[in-house]
């Protein structure tokens, strides 16, 4: 009789359970009504089963978002874990949709599910990709804009993982500042 090693049939558990959300812009509905939970997963295998099954960001209609958040955190500023938080924001040029968008998003997902920010991964709430005609955006959301050590570590690792050149500056903004901004840009708390 053959003994099968557990490695061949037990799926690889992730540190956290994650929820993937989809937002489709329908102006006749409220923002919250346009936000749908797609699925949750907590293993490497189930992450890929979901990822391989859904459309790439570059194939989505303008106005759509994907959000990947830890189970129990809703992808909105109002959630208790986001209220005092902020985001590292990557803004992409129109040319980058073809070259970088899908690659950046997959790398972002792998940073999250693989706990790529070391002990500071606990500060991560999730990530959001906004597909927009005027320019796409990807952001990693963290829980507390005052946690300087966590935020700077996450920013440095994230920039490296995306392969963003050192001379390109990325900014971290609090959700409170984003929510109350008057012009088109929010001031950076960290760069």
């Amino acid at each position: 009789q053959k003994v099968i090693s557990p490695e061949s049939y037990i799926k690889h558990p992730l540190q956290n359970k994650w929820a993937l959300w989809f937002f489709k812009n329908d102006k006749s509905k409220t923002w919250q009504a346009n936000l749908r939970l797609i699925s949750k997963f907590d293993t490497v295998e189930d992450f890929w089963a979901l990822y391989n099954h859904i459309q790439l960001p570059s194939d989505l209609m303008s106005g759509c978002d994907y959000s990947l958040f830890k189970d129990g955190i809703e992808p909105m500023w109002e959630d208790g874990r986001n209220r005092k938080g902020g985001r590292w924001l990557i803004t992409l040029s129109k040319q980058q949709r073809r070259a970088d968008l899908d690659r950046f998003w997959l790398e972002t997902l792998m940073c999250l599910v693989g706990e790529g920010f070391d002990e500071h991964s606990d500060d991560v709430c999730g990530a959001v990709i906004n597909v927009r005609a005027k320019g796409d955006k990807i952001a990693v959301w963290t829980t507390d804009y005052e946690n300087k050590d966590a935020i700077t570590h996450i920013g440095q690792v994230y920039k490296e993982r995306l392969g963003v050149p050192p001379k390109v500056i990325i900014g971290y903004q609090s959700h409170a500042d984003t929510a109350t901004k008057s012009g088109s840009s929010t001031k950076n708390k960290f760069v």
Binding site: S8, Y9, K11, H12, P13, L14, Q15, T43, V44, E45, D46, F47, W48, A49, Y51, N52, E107, M110, V113, G114, E115, G116, D118, E119, S121, R161
Partner: peptide, 20 residues
């Protein structure tokens, strides 16, 4: 400790059918 997986490890599972 934390279950940390690097990109090479994760990518290695992308096209392996999972036993469910």
């Amino acid at each position: 400790g934390k279950r940390q997986y690097n990109r090479v490890f994760l990518l290695g599972f992308q096209f392996i059918p999972a036993c469910i």
